[in-house]
Design a binder for these strands. Structure first.
Lengths: 129, 129
DNA sequence: TGTATAGGTCTCACTTAGAGACTGCGTGTG
DNA sequence: CACACGCAGTCTCTAAGTGAGACCTATACA
């Protein structure tokens, strides 16, 4: 483990490690973005339309939903399909890349669930002192 | 995969799924935080002192470094040890929880490296159109 | 005496996020 | 026929977060 990660960093640095072209930042910016990963999670259940997503994620504003979806679309993780129905409807779904992201992401969620109580405990201990 | 994730969400919803007590948010807020994961990566190489970390992560400001370290400490992922030397030195290191985070996180980085070029391609395609 | 290191804190400017009103269009309801 | 509603957003305004960098206290060294 230790060597694994250290090697990774060494490799990056050897390649120049441009922070703007950094794979970490590229993926983290998504996971980071507070909403994108929740959107991915929803879309993995099933392709959904704009307002359906909005309802599934009650705390997100339309503005942020639009923006997050655009970001994901731009990176090829989500596909946007407009149906030419009477009131035009827009369906969002995962691409293959988006779907493949769910595997490692799921590992992270497993970790989160397993360690949730410890983190909570550490937090309240810290806050008390 | 699909069922795996769908089940997870169902479980959360069954438990009440309080967004403020959500394991996803709890872990994502860290990965999200733009700097915390890079700090974890640095500390996994070896325990380091405040200014050493600052030098290793040249783009971070002291203010953000302090804040990120405090957050990580609060959640029990990083340990802060003050040595009573002449100019007191402070060493930061990973806790067991912090170290255990590196495993799933590493998976995510693998994914990022594998898909980097695709994402970049999608991005420039999107930007052109 | 002046300079450097340590580990931060403080302030200010700027960017980003969120709430929520508003748009245009078509359908259903009274 | 008038009214309200759902769709898929956009726009504006304000609040919160981020980053740059000056500043602080203390010791050691030249």
């Amino acid at each position: 483990m230790r060597d694994l990660m250290t090697d990774r960093i060494e490799q990056w640095k050897a390649r120049g490690f441009d922070p703007n072209n950094c794979p970490v930042r590229m993926v983290l910016d998504h996971v980071a973005a507070k909403w994108t990963s929740l959107i991915l999670l929803e879309l993995e259940k099933e392709p959904q339309r704009f307002n359906a997503l909005g309802r599934a994620l009650p705390d997100i504003s339309k503005r942020m939903l639009t923006q997050s979806l655009r970001d994901l679309e731009r990176d090829g993780m989500v596909r946007r399909k407009v149906y030419d129905t009477k009131p035009p409807s827009v369906e969002y779904s995962l691409t293959d890349v988006g779907l493949s992201f769910m595997a490692p992401f799921s590992q992270l969620l497993d970790w989160a669930e397993k360690n949730q109580s410890q983190i909570l405990a550490a937090r309240s201990g810290y806050d008390k002192s």
